[in-house]
C-alpha cells in the first residue's frame, strides 16, 4: 500500500526566554533577556499507509501536538522533509488543507453564537462543497452521530459531548482524505466516548480515511489503532503494533491471595510481595519467573493455607506507565 504520510528527519526547535530567580529579576529580565533553545522534535521519521488508524502517544509535553501542528500545516519545522498526500503542508498550505480534517479536542472550530447548521453551511461555502454532496455527507454524519436535534441549537448551549460530535461532523463535511484528531475523547463520559470511538471506526471503514490520533486514553488506542507511534522527549521510541508491546508485558501478573489465617511473614521464591495486610497479600512475579497457576498453588500451599486467589494482568495504562518509565521520558 502506498504511504500517504511521509515524515523524514523532522526537527523543531523553539527559542524561549530564560527567567532567572531572585530579587529584581523581573526588572532585570525586562531589559536583558537570555534565550535557550528547546528541541521539541528530534529527527522524527515515520510513514503512514493509506487507510491506517495511527495512535500517536507519549506523556504530556512529549511533542505530540507539535507533530500534529506540523502535519496540518500550522507550524513550519526547523529542518526535515514531510510529504503528505503529495503536498508539503507548510508550502502549499491552501491546497493541502482541502484534503485534511482537524479536530483539536480542547478548541472549537464552530461559531459560538449561531446554530450549528449555520456553521456547517459556512464550512460548506469555505470548502466549496457541491450542494448535493453536502446533503449526502450531512445525512450520513447525522445518522451516525445522531445530530438531528442539535443542528438548530447554538454551540454555546451544547454539552461537551454534543459539542465533540458536532466538531467531528464539522471536520468531515468536506470528505477529507486524512483526519487529525488531537485528544478527541478528552473529558467525555463513557457513553459518548464509545459513540465517538464507533464513529471513528465507521468513517475509517466507510471512506478509507487515514486517521492520526493523539490521546491519553489507552482504551482509545486499544479499540481503534492498528499502529502506534510512541514519542518521548521529542524522539520516536517505538513504532509498530500495540499487540507486540502487550505481549512483552503479558508475562507479568499480579496475584492477590487470601489466606486462612494471619501470617507474620510471607515469602515465596520468584515472587515479590508488594503488599501484606493480615490475611491478604499481593504478589508479583519477578521477570525471571514464568507464572503457572498450578505450580503457583503447589508452591504456596507448601507453607501457607490459602482460601482464594485472583490473577490480573497489567492494564494498558500500567503497561504504558512502565514503558514511559523504561524510556525515562516522564517530565520532572
Amino acid at each position: 500500500m502506498a504511504s500517504i504520510i511521509d515524515f523524514t528527519d523532522i526537527c523543531k526547535t523553539f527559542k524561549v526566554p530564560l527567567r532567572t530567580k531572585g530579587k529584581f529579576s523581573m526588572f532585570k529580565n525586562f531589559f536583558i533577556r537570555k534565550y535557550k533553545t528547546i528541541e521539541a522534535l528530534k529527527n522524527i521519521t515515520f510513514k503512514v499507509n493509506e487507510g491506517d488508524i495511527v495512535g500517536y502517544i507519549g506523556p504530556n509535553g512529549a511533542g505530540k501536538s507539535t507533530t500534529i501542528k506540523i502535519m496540518s500545516g500550522i507550524l513550519t519545522p526547523t529542518s526535515g522533509n514531510c510529504v503528505i498526500n503529495g503536498y508539503v503542508p507548510w508550502k502549499n498550505r491552501r491546497e493541502f488543507v482541502k484534503n485534511i480534517g482537524v479536530v483539536f479536542g480542547q478548541r472549537s472550530q464552530l461559531w459560538w453564537d449561531v446554530p450549528i447548521m449555520d456553521s456547517f453551511e459556512l464550512l460548506r461555502d469555505i470548502y466549496k462543497i457541491p450542494k448535493d454532496e453536502f446533503d449526502k455527507t450531512l445525512k450520513l454524519l447525522n445518522d451516525a452521530l445522531n445530530l438531528e436535534t442539535l443542528l438548530n441549537r447554538p454551540l454555546r448551549q451544547l454539552s461537551l459531548g454534543q459539542k465533540m460530535k458536532c466538531e467531528l461532523a464539522g471536520s468531515l463535511l468536506h470528505h477529507p482524505k486524512i483526519l487529525f484528531l488531537d485528544e478527541p475523547t478528552i473529558g467525555l463520559d463513557a457513553i459518548t466516548k464509545l459513540a465517538v470511538r464507533d464513529f471513528i471506526k465507521f468513517i475509517n471503514k466507510k471512506w478509507k480515511t487515514t486517521i492520526i490520533l493523539t490521546t491519553h486514553d489507552m482504551n482509545d488506542i486499544e479499540a481503534l489503532t492498528n499502529k502506534i507511534i510512541l514519542i518521548g522527549k521529542g524522539q520516536i521510541l517505538y513504532q509498530g503494533s500495540f499487540e507486540k508491546i502487550k505481549e512483552n508485558y503479558a508475562s507479568s501478573k499480579t496475584i492477590t491471595v487470601e489466606f486462612a489465617k494471619d501470617y507474620d511473614n510471607i515469602a515465596l521464591d520468584g515472587y515479590e510481595i508488594t503488599n501484606h495486610e493480615k490475611r491478604f497479600a499481593t504478589l508479583k512475579n519477578l521477570p525471571s519467573k514464568q507464572f503457572h497457576p498450578k505450580e503457583f498453588i503447589n508452591e504456596i500451599s507448601k507453607n501457607y493455607e490459602i482460601i482464594d486467589f485472583q490473577v490480573t494482568s497489567l492494564s494498558v495504562d500500567e503497561i504504558l506507565a512502565k514503558l514511559y518509565k523504561q524510556y525515562e521520558i516522564i517530565e520532572r
Partner: peptide, 13 residues
C-alpha cells in the same frame, strides 16, 4: 488563545 489554529487549516487567505 490559539484557536487561530483552525484558521490555518482552512483553504483561505
Amino acid at each position: 488563545n490559539g484557536n487561530v489554529s483552525y484558521n490555518f487549516v482552512r483553504p483561505l487567505d
